[in-house]
């Protein structure tokens, strides 16, 4: 009786991951719309300063490196989970969480500086599209961080059962996906502003 059960579980698991993958792809379409809006509106500054004057490349580079590292530690956590090493999994997810929160802190600091200098989203179409794009990504990171907290709690209390590991797989897909979206934000918003 054991073997068919296992097969059914694996079958359902790959279906679940396919479903989650479809969700990620629709999320990608949403980001694409925001990117298109940004690209169409980035010259509409309404007389205010444009992208090249507003953004600091160093801050964005720091955020990029932090997020890339968090993606890497998330990968390490998944490797530990597949080795059934509970403590290492929890530790690497904690590191990922810390890096994610650092990223969020840096982004909020950047936003509050922009707002303090008077460059709010009400100033121009360019700033509206910038805040819409970057803070949507930030909101995803915030929800992902919350998800990591819940996942750590579940690993801690229930251990690395196949069910939990399957959940962790989806979490890590989500996190790496956000990393990819950020690569494009970094390139299109920050680097192309300085070209």
């Amino acid at each position: 009786m054991q073997k068919p059960d296992l097969q059914i579980t694996q079958h359902n698991d790959s279906k679940t991951i396919l479903g989650f993958w479809v969700y990620l792809m629709t999320d990608l379409i949403m980001f694409a719309v925001l990117f298109a809006t940004y690209a169409a509106l980035k010259t509409s500054t309404f007389g205010g300063p444009g992208p090249s004057e507003l953004f600091s490349l160093n801050g964005a580079l720091a955020e990029t490196l932090i997020l890339l590292t968090s993606s890497f530690t998330c990968g390490l956590a998944m490797l530990a989970a597949h080795r059934q090493n509970k403590n290492q999994t929890i530790i690497w997810f904690l590191v990922t969480l810390a890096l994610g929160l650092t990223f969020l802190g840096l982004e909020l600091k950047e936003f509050s500086q922009l707002i303090a200098e008077g460059h709010t989203w009400q100033k121009s179409a360019f700033l509206s599209s910038f805040f819409a794009l970057v803070s949507t990504h930030g909101l995803h990171i915030a929800i992902g961080s919350l998800w990591i907290v819940v996942a750590i709690k579940q690993i801690y209390s229930r251990g690395l059962t196949p069910f939990i590991t399957s959940k962790l797989t989806r979490l890590s897909l989500f996190w790496h996906f956000l990393d990819i979206v950020w690569i494009f934000i970094f390139t299109i918003v920050y680097l192309m502003a300085k070209v």
């Binding site: 993958w21 479809v22 379409i29 719309v33 298109a36 690209a39």
Partner: peptide, 21 residues
């Protein structure tokens, strides 16, 4: 199926972004 979904999404994204611009 993962790749099918990925490539159709890439197609939609390219149409959306390039078309909008």
């Amino acid at each position: 199926w993962n790749l099918v979904v990925l490539f159709s999404t890439v197609g939609i994204v390219l149409i959306l972004v390039l078309g909008s611009i």
